[in-house]
């Protein structure tokens, strides 16, 4: 967009309307750009050095939430990304040891271990406890859908069960 075109927009619309509709290209000289970057990096470095452990935890938790949502939105099933995988990530985010976390959601460490290693399917109440534990950052429905992804995949790909169940279907739809 030429300078003339930008000036025309500034005549046509109010400043508020422009800011609600555009981020314009701003061309800086090399020196100006270096100055601008140095200024910004200095401010950000100072601010980053002041963040609290609580804020760090919350940011990690949100990152996990978005990671789960992206996975759930995706078309492809990933065997690695099961319930246990995301639960392990959750523990890392909140910086808790398994035994400590198990106590916080009122289950035995052995039960938690079964979920972490994907040896046991989590019941609904565990997903609700996870939601409450994250202070609603990660909803129970996301945990449920992650667990269901596996069931759906099994249902779609299990040949053995099809062979077995075929014996019970005496007529197929014509």
């Amino acid at each position: 967009m030429s300078k003339k075109q930008i000036e025309k927009l500034f005549e046509q619309y109010s400043l508020e309307e422009l800011a609600e509709s555009f981020v314009f290209p701003v061309r800086l000289t090399k020196k100006q750009q270096q100055e601008a970057d140095a200024e910004l990096n200095a401010v950000l470095a100072k601010r980053r050095s002041e963040i609290t452990p609580e804020f760090k935890k919350q940011a990690r938790l949100l990152q996990l939430k978005f990671q789960m949502e992206d996975y759930l939105k995706g078309i492809r099933y990933d065997k690695q990304k099961n319930f246990g995988f995301f639960l392990r990530q959750y523990l890392q985010c909140i910086d808790k040891r398994s035994s400590e976390f198990a106590a916080e959601i009122d289950i035995l460490p052995s039960e938690l271990s079964q979920y972490l290693n994907n040896h046991r399917k989590p019941p609904k109440h565990i997903m609700v406890r996870l939601e409450l534990h994250s202070q609603n950052t990660i909803p129970a429905s996301d945990w449920y859908r992650v667990a269901e992804m596996e069931t759906l995949h099994e249902l779609a790909t299990d040949k053995a069960i099809r062979k077995e169940q075929k014996l019970h279907v005496h007529a197929a739809r014509v």
Binding site: I6, F10, L15, E16, L18, A19, E20, F22, V23, F24, V26, L28, Q32, E35, A36, E39, L40, V43, L44, R48, I51, F55, K56, A59, R60, Q63
Partner: peptide, 30 residues
């Protein structure tokens, strides 16, 4: 993650609105 930042280089006349509407902070140029 916790280090995440978003920046833009504004037209000077629009800085006020970006700050009030979206919460941007200014460093001078950016």
């Amino acid at each position: 993650e916790s280090l995440a930042a978003v920046s833009l280089i504004p037209k000077t006349a629009l800085i006020h609105h970006y700050v009030t509407e979206y919460g941007f902070e200014s460093t001078g140029w950016q």
